[in-house]
Design a protein around this nucleic acid. Sequence first.
DNA 1: TTGTAGGCGTTATCAA
DNA 2: TTGATAACGCCTACAA
Lengths: 359, 359
Amino acid sequence: MMDRPPRTRPPATLASLAAELGISRTTVSNAYNRPDQLSPQLRSRVMEAARLMGYPGPDPVARSLRTRKAGAIGLLLTEQVSYAFRDPGAVAFLEGLTLECDLARVGLLLVPARPDSEDVLAVSSAAVDGFVVYSMPDDDPHLAAALARPVPAVICDQPSIPGADLVGIDDAAAIRGVADHLLGLGHRRIGVICMRLGRANLDGPVSIERQNAAHYHVQRNRLMGLREAFTAAGVAWDRVPVVERFEHSVDAGASAAAEVLALDPGITALVATTDVFALGAINELTRRRQRVPEDVSVTGFDGIRPAIDAQLTTVVQPVVEKGRQAGRLLLSPGRRTAGRRVMLETTFLAGKTTAHPKV
Amino acid sequence: MMDRPPRTRPPATLASLAAELGISRTTVSNAYNRPDQLSPQLRSRVMEAARLMGYPGPDPVARSLRTRKAGAIGLLLTEQVSYAFRDPGAVAFLEGLTLECDLARVGLLLVPARPDSEDVLAVSSAAVDGFVVYSMPDDDPHLAAALARPVPAVICDQPSIPGADLVGIDDAAAIRGVADHLLGLGHRRIGVICMRLGRANLDGPVSIERQNAAHYHVQRNRLMGLREAFTAAGVAWDRVPVVERFEHSVDAGASAAAEVLALDPGITALVATTDVFALGAINELTRRRQRVPEDVSVTGFDGIRPAIDAQLTTVVQPVVEKGRQAGRLLLSPGRRTAGRRVMLETTFLAGKTTAHPKV
DNA sequence: TTGTAGGCGTTATCAA
DNA sequence: TTGATAACGCCTACAA
């Protein structure tokens, strides 16, 4: 009794509790994990002693080690975690993903993986039963670290890795719809704004080589889709100004629009590969007293809420559903077969930001 | 060599790798954790063997068990996790919190704690070094489970628990500003919409007793603040219709507004304890062809983006900063002293949804 | 219904 | 620079 002064006493463990009660560890363990394997009175004796000794119940980590289950999945993002909460697309994806986590009663660990850092420790030391990888460049070391772990992985949007499950959309086909819409309206001089194509913080005009070598497949595929549609319509792709921005923000979209207009002041339409950039482009045009769509047409991609509200012409993709599918793929009990692919449908949405070019 | 057919071979471990190489486990461990404690050639021999044997590096859970660090903190929310991503306030809070997590290179585990479930397993078995509790009712078993864990906890908004750190605002004082504003404009018949006051899914008019017994302190304090201001101005609080909604959505706000108007069609102002509800109230009034603020004034609370955009009269609280403070409190290295309190400033924002009552 | 005992995979300590 | 030993706290056959 008095042999352990309450202040200095080491934290109680299942073993110390058992010793105190003069019973076996098994019994204490059962008291927590299999109440039915125990006489009610013994169980309550155990619980009472636990309360007295301040035993907080079985240590989660020790339990995980023993059972080989963490009860959580990890999420890897392109960017710092906090960034995700500023991006409507990422928030919607998270909503879908956590919907499934809630259902499966599994936690979601947001893994701190800064894109600029080569420090992969956070990934290799995350206690998770699987990874969801959201829109990562194919050469990111964090991705490699996740795939090296002996747990399943579901990749969202990109990159496509043999052996890992994939959820995505047909970006090229989807954006061809946009291109055809503009071409159909008569546009021939078109500028393009795209998001980062590699891990380096680069802004500016994009060469064809850089497009081809892009590590962000989504962006590459969207550019490819545009290129195909334009080429098919006789618009020479190498004459189309394409400007890249590393940061995905409305302001970056605005500055990219300014840069495109500097490269070719005569464009009649501006294709942005994301809604966020499209909204920025509209801001910039408005600032210059250019009317949308009378003077310049603008299109986006994604279908985020503010874009819909602004009646942007865009492609709507089911982002929440994407998150759900990723979660389901990772959490489905019978996930024996890796390499599954779920491709989601997209919808072209004609808004009020596109019209015939001025004559 | 041949004693382990590659297909059936059990997963490599640090020990098996050491055995294979004929060196000690310590050395292998050092190869990963303390490269400088090792001759470069031995280290590269280890790494090469690891690659060959498909050893993914030290097991995170075993490491955690040994080092007693999880490298992650847990977040407990009032609601299902997925719900947070539909609530602008929660998203902003998460942004602030993850800002600090990123900085500290610590993961954030979203713990699946359904409010309607008494199943506390997810909380007691979360592998985390601490908890942030966001706006929980004081009688929630998940909260109790978190506090029972031998890790620090920071509570956000509510409830105030002796021994745990707290981040919050002075809700009563803040909403008194709103009340005084309305009273100053001349309003005397005012209705109130508030959020859930307890864990049970209850909608409808709220008795004084229920207000006093509310388990959601934030809501209670806001009601108390109103009561004080109204009473001081000679408006009898027991004549003020107060309607509660469990679900925190724009539509719920609209239906609550309808219910308040049914209780007293003669009100000239509607105070909502959240912006979301206020936006719903405006929707409902508009639907009824009542003008805001000419026919009815409306106020909110929180300062979420859509409310600012709608020029709602409201109280702005620094939600992102709240998340940061919570993270900082939990992650600050020298956190020896529990029971710290950080109270943040709020700002009254006079928008265009309040005016003098009609005469 | 309860107990025995081995091991999950790692790292800290200390010695060589 | 490297190694031996002892935990870390728990679960789970298996046995009684």
